[in-house]
Design a protein around this nucleic acid. Structure first.
Length: 480
DNA sequence: CTAGGGTTATGA
DNA sequence: TCATAACCCTAG
């Protein structure tokens, strides 16, 4: 079991660095068992998701969520948030807000800007302010927040924000962060192996690769013919282990993973091979030295293992896959009835969503992840994979469906600091639409008067610019 | 988080 | 100027 996840981890580490289609990556993540104790792998996945988000040259609010998750993982390891990461976070937050001002129909998008300010700055970022040691907290962020909020009612600030935002190169900032983060995570284990394999004869011997033509190719051919496998490599591996010196990292990895004789019997190897073949075109086009070695190694390992594999039932793995990406049921459950209510509402109001959309909406939103992030005890929490596994290719955050945010576990800032950021503005009154009024009536009927937060969460889309207090006040004057 | 009182904006 | 709606503050 451990071996499965360990090997799976190596494969994922490796593959996350490859320029594969997101869909292929999704498939892989679906079939590979995921170790839940490897922070770097989670970070690598998050980085990959960020790369995917910026691949079309723009940024989305999802990136904020991903950055927060990475920061959380960093924090758990005592890693301080780098300036580069802060800058990237700030830049993305700014861009995600200001983009609504830069569009051609600026006038009609003021509402969207307002919503974005509310979503990003008033909720997400203000929440951080209430906590201690959140890495993204910095002067620059607060300066931007003040200006962006001021721009809501002050035309001069408005122009100023637009001007200043032109100087923010958001995609570049994110890219710089990604490369820095990758550096910190280090090379994938398989790359290390491949490199050592290429340059170090003893490692080659360890994997039985000294006789590459003879061993590997033969195995491969025999597998293709469906013959039983000789286990030379196995033997070589076992017998040379301890006798030869290999690079420390490899040795410790192998030992930590509990790799023994049955290393090569893992069904994961077969899955990996499938996956690698699936993506072989893309891979082979892109990989450079030493990657061919890594591929060869993977092939070799897997071919040795395949014999055993054939005797294993296919469903072996299904139990172990924690939460397939496409499976939304768990998440829907976890986030309660509210989502369902929202869906019903959606279905009547908007065009019928397709399956993908439904999954997307049900499965996650940045709010959901944020909720999990904040709901968890800072010190003890480790992210489960379903925190991280959203669909690749997912469009920009659909999640207006905010959930109630539990009180943060991080301790409060000093009163001085808190005071500094206290609200000094008043929202411009916005007339309630009939849709909002009708929805409020429905909400009160369904959840009862007084459960304002529940109602707000249930109809997030419609009450995009309202607070629970607003609902309460509105109801008060509706029934008076 | 909500209830309830207070404040501000809007429009006639 | 006034009524009303929208928004804010804060005790419990």
């Amino acid at each position: 079991m451990d071996i499965d996840t360990a090997i799976s981890r190596w494969i994922l580490e490796f593959i996350l660095r490859q320029p594969l289609d997101d869909s292929i990556l999704n498939d892989l993540i679906n079939i590979l068992p995921l170790p839940n104790n490897n922070s770097n792998l989670k970070k690598a996945l998050l980085l990959r998701k960020i790369e995917s988000e910026i691949s079309n040259g723009s940024v989305t609010e999802k990136i904020l969520e991903f950055l927060e998750l990475i920061e959380e993982l960093d924090h758990q390891e005592g890693i301080e948030t780098s300036e580069v990461m802060k800058a990237a976070y700030c830049a993305v937050a700014v861009e995600c807000t200001v983009k609504y001002l830069n569009s051609k129909e600026a006038g009609s998008d003021k509402g969207k800007y307002f919503e974005a300010v509310r979503r990003i700055w008033k909720r997400r970022i203000n929440l951080m302010e209430k906590m201690e040691n959140v890495g993204f907290v910095c002067e620059e962020l607060w300066n931007w927040r003040d200006e962006i909020e001021a721009a809501l009612w002050d035309d001069r600030c408005f122009d100023n924000v637009i001007r200043r935002s032109k100087g923010v190169f958001v995609v570049e900032a994110v890219k710089v962060f990604i490369s820095e983060a990758k550096e910190r995570i280090g090379s994938p284990f398989l790359d290390v192996v491949a490199e050592s394999y290429r340059t170090d004869d003893t490692v080659k011997a360890l994997f039985g690769g000294a006789n590459e033509e003879g061993t590997c190719r033969n195995n491969d051919r025999e597998v293709r013919k469906g013959k039983a496998l000789p286990r030379q490599k196995h033997v070589a591996f076992k017998h040379t282990r301890g006798a030869v010196r290999i690079s420390d990292s490899i040795e410790s990895e192998l030992e930590a993973s509990g790799v023994q004789d049955d290393l090569l019997s893992s069904p994961v190897i077969q899955l990996a091979e499938e996956a690698l073949k699936l993506s072989s075109l893309g891979l082979r086009a892109m990989v450079k030295d030493p990657l061919p070695d890594a591929l060869r190694l993977a092939e070799t390992l897997s071919s040795t293992a395949r014999d055993n594999m054939d005797h294993q039932p296919a469903e072996n793995n299904s139990d172990r896959v924690p939460h397939p990406v496409g499976d939304s049921s768990r998440t829907v459950q976890a986030s309660g009835d509210n989502r369902e209510a929202q869906h019903n509402c959606h279905h009547t109001a908007a065009s019928k969503p397709n399956l993908v959309n439904r999954n997307r909406a049900a499965h996650t939103s940045e709010a959901y992840a944020l909720k999990k992030l904040l709901a968890s005890t800072r010190a003890a929490h480790t992210f489960e994979w379903d925190d991280l596994l959203d669909e690749f290719n997912e469009g920009s955050a659909s999640g207006v469906n905010r959930v109630t945010l539990p009180s943060p576990k991080r301790t409060k800032l000093s009163p001085l600091k808190t005071y500094e950021f206290k609200k000094i503005t008043r929202r411009k009154p916005t007339k309630w639409s009939t849709l909002e009024e009708d929805t409020l009536r429905t909400g009160v009927q369904k959840y009862g008067s007084g459960n304002w937060t529940t109602i707000l969460d249930a109809y997030r889309d419609i009450f995009a610019v309202r607070t629970a207090g607003d609902l309460k006040d509105k109801w008060r004057n509706m029934i008076s």
